[in-house]
């Protein structure tokens, strides 16, 4: 099994598309950094406009934490694109290339094949988030230094002590990975259904976009539906930037995502084990 995963990873990282995600983040995040060097202070001023009226404050609010938070907030919607690029290709890519025939005629079970591909996809997802974390937190640290994290949470301004932030980011990145895994599972499911990798990428993104739009419509029916949509919970990494932590809510979101992952993956297994390979 380990060897199968290693082979799948080798295949993933021999493909050009795999690097699109890494390159995209590698370009985008430094751009955000540059923008923050130039405009960061006015962003802070904008965010703290109201407290500036009544308060005097000192401290480095324009720090790597704030910027990492802004990056995570801004990119969390777009990273799924990068994830599906690879996850949607995992199975469909073999169909397109005709290499299903090479794989499935070998003495391995389809279940193991699916699992190794899925795990390889998860590793890719993790690496992409790690890369995101590295670029935002660590590279950001060398540009902006550390400091307290300022967050606007609904109608509240929360400032976290600098020593109280890193663990939140670690958990938030972990949670973001869980969310992206749900996205990857969906793309993987679609990937098992079709013979080209464009289909899964587009369908996954379409579903995410439709769900996000539904969630945004202020109609009771859609709002009632919202807690059940996995897209709602992709952004739940933010729950780690609350004081105190809402453990119940975190658990809810995590369970929702995990259930989605299990269902998507289970369906993939079920479908793929019965699939006639005609390509």
């Amino acid at each position: 099994m380990l060897d199968l995963i290693r082979i799948e990873l080798y295949k993933i990282f021999k493909k050009w598309r795999t690097y699109i995600g890494f390159i995209a983040l590698g370009v985008l995040i430094p751009l955000i950094h540059i923008a923050m060097v130039l405009e960061g202070q006015s962003t802070i001023n904008f965010m703290t406009r109201n407290i500036q009226e009544s308060f005097v404050f000192v401290g480095n609010l324009l720090n790597t934490y704030l910027i990492s938070y802004i990056i995570l907030t801004s990119l969390a919607v777009h990273i799924p694109f990068l994830i599906t690029l690879v996850a949607g290709d995992l199975l469909a890519g073999e169909a397109t290339a005709g290499t299903y025939r090479l794989l499935i005629t070998r003495p391995i079970s389809r279940t193991r094949l699916i699992m190794s591909k899925f795990i390889a996809g998860l590793i890719y997802t993790n690496l992409l988030i790690l890369w995101l974390a590295f670029l935002s937190l660590i590279v950001g640290y060398f540009i902006f230094g550390s400091g307290e994290l300022l967050i606007i949470d609904g109608q509240m301004i929360i400032i976290f002590e600098r020593n109280d932030v890193l663990w939140r980011f670690i958990l938030a990145y972990g949670f973001a990975t869980l969310g992206m895994t749900a996205v990857a599972s969906l793309a993987f499911l679609f990937s098992s259904l079709v013979e080209n990798s464009i289909g899964p990428i587009i369908s996954t993104m379409a579903i995410i976009i439709v769900f996000l739009i539904l969630s945004a419509i202020q109609v009771d029916f859609f709002q009632d539906l919202k807690p059940y949509l996995f897209t709602t919970h992709i952004m739940s990494w933010r729950l780690f930037f609350e004081n105190p932590l809402d453990l119940k809510e975190i658990f809810n979101s995590a369970s929702n995502l995990i259930i989605h992952i299990i269902v998507f993956f289970g369906l993939t297994l079920f479908i793929f084990n019965r699939k006639d390979i005609l390509t």
């Binding site: 965010m47 009544s54 938070y69």
Partner: peptide
């Protein structure tokens, strides 16, 4: 001191799926 409720800018605002967000 007494302050009126603040109108905070909604950029980078936390919008977690919490229904019980404090008002």
């Amino acid at each position: 001191f007494n302050v009126d409720k603040m109108n905070l800018p909604q950029t980078f605002t936390n919008t977690t799926p919490k229904s019980n967000r404090k008002k």
